[in-house]
Simulated scan of single mutants.
Amino acid sequence: MLTAPGVVLTPHIAGGSQEVAHKAARIVAADVGRYLRGEPLVHCANPGVLRAG
């Protein structure tokens, strides 16, 4: 699941402005909070991975 050693999760923001980077950070932080509370994620590129664990 999400406990694999050496795995780093990051949003893709290549070429984005500082405003875009801040917005992406807020989105990621919100989804991390949802994950920790056991809530469904809003922005998940591969939800099957979460169900597999």
Rank of each mutant, 00 (worst) to 15 (best):
18 Q>H: 10
30 A>C: 10
10 T>V: 08
31 D>Q: 08
12 H>S: 06
3 T>E: 15
33 G>M: 03
33 G>D: 08
27 I>Y: 10
21 A>I: 15
40 P>C: 13
37 R>C: 06
9 L>K: 06
2 L>V: 13
36 L>T: 00
34 R>G: 04
18 Q>K: 11
24 A>L: 03
6 G>Y: 04
12 H>V: 05
32 V>C: 06
30 A>M: 14
16 G>K: 12
26 R>Y: 05
27 I>E: 13
51 R>L: 10
22 H>L: 11
35 Y>S: 00
41 L>V: 07
50 L>M: 09
25 A>I: 12
36 L>M: 13
11 P>K: 04
6 G>H: 03
21 A>C: 14
42 V>P: 04
3 T>M: 07
17 S>V: 02
26 R>E: 03
31 D>R: 04
53 G>P: 11
18 Q>V: 10
38 G>I: 04
37 R>V: 07
42 V>R: 11
17 S>F: 08
13 I>P: 05
52 A>M: 04
20 V>T: 12
34 R>C: 07
32 V>F: 02
37 R>F: 08
26 R>S: 08
10 T>H: 15
5 P>Y: 13
2 L>R: 03
22 H>F: 14
31 D>A: 04
48 G>M: 03
4 A>H: 06
35 Y>K: 01
43 H>R: 12
21 A>T: 13
27 I>M: 11
29 A>M: 10
45 A>C: 08
10 T>M: 14
23 K>T: 14
26 R>T: 02
42 V>D: 09
50 L>P: 09
45 A>R: 01
27 I>T: 12
32 V>D: 09
47 P>W: 01
29 A>H: 13
26 R>V: 04
38 G>K: 02
33 G>W: 03
8 V>G: 09
53 G>A: 06
12 H>G: 03
35 Y>R: 00
41 L>R: 00
38 G>Q: 03
52 A>E: 09
5 P>E: 15
11 P>S: 07
25 A>T: 14
17 S>R: 10
51 R>K: 13
7 V>C: 00
7 V>L: 01
19 E>W: 09
30 A>E: 14
50 L>F: 07
48 G>Q: 09
42 V>G: 06
24 A>K: 00
17 S>I: 02
53 G>K: 07
6 G>N: 10
24 A>N: 02
19 E>H: 07
49 V>M: 04
49 V>W: 02
37 R>A: 13
32 V>A: 06
23 K>Y: 11
14 A>K: 00
21 A>K: 10
2 L>F: 07
50 L>S: 01
39 E>A: 07
31 D>K: 02
18 Q>F: 07
17 S>N: 12
25 A>S: 13
13 I>Q: 02
